[in-house]
Amino acid sequence: MTHVFDEATAVTALDTDAHTVRATTHPAYNNMVGPFGGITAATIVSALQKHPDALGDPLALTVNYVAPIAEGHWDLTLVPVRTNRTNQHWTFTIDQQEHTVATGTAVFGIRRDTWTDTEPAAPQAPDAETVEAVDFPDFIAWARNYEKRFIVGGMNDGALDDSTTTMWIRDLPERPLDFASLTSITDTFFPRVFLRKGAYAPAGTISLTTYFHASADELAAQGSRPVLATAKAARFAGGHFDQYGQIWGDDDVLLATTHQLVYFKDAPA
């Protein structure tokens, strides 16, 4: 039986060289407006990995969400810009109904055996099994595909002076972690303005960047066990805020870091 995540990220080639592929939005990953941005980013990573010219594994991805994606088909055009000995650069666009709705870049590469160190430390957290799982409101469909166990910064904590969320998270039903699902998880943090204001408000990601630090072997070793995800903002101003996040695996292995620019409007009084 196909996992719902794999159904949602499936693509079909529209040309013989696979430079343009077609995806279809999936109702299980709907957001408040359009599809969940994480599933769109995951579809891009999955399509790039399946491209016959892809070199190695994902190293970096940036998606700029130009306009909301409507329900239905959308086309992804992949352009290999340059391939070097150990890294490869791509640009891409998503078009729907004759309009460009997203643009971005990706870097793939071959990981070499080098000196390794991780400077930040993983957040302190109790074992995932000891933390109660929490559901999001029913109108946020995509969240039902994740098991979420909040340690700090949950959805119902009221207005807070700090925007940090730390949570255990994994796919639901359970699914072994890979680059595509890791990509989606980097976008599972709800907007930081909700936490600061203690209320829902119109908000959406403008640009999402993910850096993949984990190797394919490290992701395979993680399996379907929960990962520890933490994120916070630095500044809210002029209708925008940033967000920086980290995704940690077993044994305090840093799997990915992520940055976002998010727009928001003040909640109605």
Rank of each mutant, 00 (worst) to 15 (best):
F5R: 07
D6A: 14
E7I: 09
E7L: 14
A10G: 01
A13E: 14
T20I: 06
T24A: 14
P27T: 07
A28M: 03
A28S: 10
V33T: 15
G34M: 06
G37L: 11
A42M: 06
A47P: 04
A54Q: 04
D57L: 15
P58G: 11
L59R: 14
A60R: 06
L61W: 10
V63H: 00
I69T: 04
A70N: 02
G72T: 08
W74I: 08
W74T: 05
T77N: 08
L78M: 15
P80K: 05
V81H: 05
T83A: 13
R85E: 11
R85N: 09
T93F: 00
Q96G: 10
H99F: 01
T100E: 14
V101E: 00
T103Q: 09
G104T: 13
I110S: 10
D113A: 01
T114L: 15
T116A: 14
A122L: 12
D127C: 09
P137E: 04
F139H: 09
I140N: 00
I140F: 02
A143Y: 12
N145D: 03
E147K: 11
F150H: 11
F150D: 03
N156K: 10
N156R: 15
L160G: 00
D162T: 09
T164V: 14
T165G: 08
M167A: 15
I169R: 00
P173T: 07
D178V: 12
S181I: 08
L182C: 05
I185Y: 02
T188Q: 08
G198M: 02
Y200I: 02
P202Y: 01
S207V: 12
T210W: 15
F212G: 05
A214C: 13
D217N: 06
A220G: 06
A221G: 09
S224G: 10
V227I: 12
L228T: 12
L228S: 05
L228A: 07
A229R: 04
R235F: 03
G238K: 10
Y244F: 14
G245N: 06
Q246I: 09
I247L: 11
I247D: 05
D250E: 08
V253G: 05
A256M: 02
H259K: 10
L261H: 03
V262P: 01
V262Q: 03
K265I: 08
D266W: 04
A269W: 02
